[in-house]
């Protein structure tokens, strides 16, 4: 009798495990690839993230970021932050637009923002990756204040517009995914569209060295405290009558100038921008390995300032 009960229970457990694994209870269920043309995708239901912007969640996030992540980032990398003064005098929401080559990028950006900005910033994150599994969605929404963005050609949800209207700034990575070789890819127009339609400025942010520090495939920065730079650029406002596409071009150019500035100096970068000869942030048109090779080197280490008095 007892043996029968054990058998029934164990076979039920086996079946439940099989169903849980087969239907990816911990992940978003995806149709087999060959079934996609025959699959009716249910209307996408956005993962709810309002709770992650509640007072309690904001307080918890600040504690996690300030108390845990910031010291960790500074311990694991050699961080240099430039241009935060551009935020002085800004009132109201902005869209931070950054290049993207590493999972480190969001942490770099959030841990370098002043506290008053950090408390009111939300990060656009790929719905199919960060919101694929409930535990990942909850974790990223709590720690990084993420909200889902569909990358598969689906139109923008109403969430970012709603957030801007509520005074939340946004962090967006218009490349849509991490760069496979450290160089900047083509910008999608979502961020520019949002800025143009909500009339909010865009703050370009150049993230340099994150690819070298923690490229795709790594879950932790390389040892040796690799150098990473976070450089904030001057806000760009949408001009009257300016289309999202044109504005997006300006944002991409501004980010290119920032990257150039990080490699060289501010004045030289400005001159090259004025002459229209800013080096392309997309990198040289050479073999892939050479592009990866160059990106992997990271930014030049910060030279110690010569001492005035020895």
């Amino acid at each position: 009798m007892a043996g029968g009960v054990v058998d029934v229970t164990s076979s039920l457990v086996r079946d439940v495990k099989q169903v849980a694994r087969g239907w990816r209870w911990t992940h978003r269920q995806l149709p087999p690839r060959s079934a996609e043309p025959h699959h009716v995708f249910p209307e996408a239901r956005e993962f709810p993230t309002d709770w992650a912007r509640s007072r309690v969640a904001v307080a918890a996030r600040e504690a996690i970021l300030r108390g845990g992540l910031t010291p960790l980032v500074r311990h694991e990398t050699t961080l240099r932050v430039e241009g935060l003064d551009v935020l002085d005098g800004l009132d109201g929401p902005v869209i931070f637009v950054a290049n993207h080559s590493s999972h480190l990028d969001t942490a770099l950006l959030l841990t370098t923002l002043p506290p008053e900005w950090l408390r009111r910033v939300a990060v656009g994150a790929a719905a199919d990756y960060f919101f694929d599994a409930w535990w990942r969605a909850v974790g990223s929404a709590l720690v990084f204040a993420t909200f889902p963005i569909e990358r598969g050609g689906v139109g923008l949800s109403e969430t970012p517009t709603k957030l801007l209207a509520q005074g939340w700034s946004l962090v967006m990575f218009p490349e849509g995914t991490r760069s496979p070789d450290g160089w900047t890819r083509r910008f999608r127009l979502g961020a520019a569209y949002l800025a143009a339609h909500n009339n909010v400025p865009v703050v370009p942010v150049a993230l340099v060295g994150s690819y070298a520090a923690m490229p795709r495939g790594r879950g932790w920065p390389k040892p040796g405290r690799p150098p990473v730079h976070v450089r904030y650029g001057r806000p760009l406002a949408v001009q009257p009558g300016e289309e999202a596409r044109a504005f997006g071009g300006r944002v991409a150019a501004a980010l290119g100038t920032l990257l150039d500035e990080d490699r060289t100096d501010w004045y030289g970068a400005r001159k090259r921008a004025a002459a229209g000869v800013t080096p392309s942030p997309a990198g040289p048109d050479v073999a892939r390995w050479r592009r990866v090779w160059e990106s992997s080197a990271g930014p030049a280490p910060v030279r110690r300032r010569p001492r005035a008095w020895r």
Binding site: P31, P32, S34, P37, H38
Partner: peptide, 9 residues
């Protein structure tokens, strides 16, 4: 249709 079993199936 004819499905081809993959890791998502």
């Amino acid at each position: 249709f004819v499905l081809e079993v993959d890791e998502r199936t």
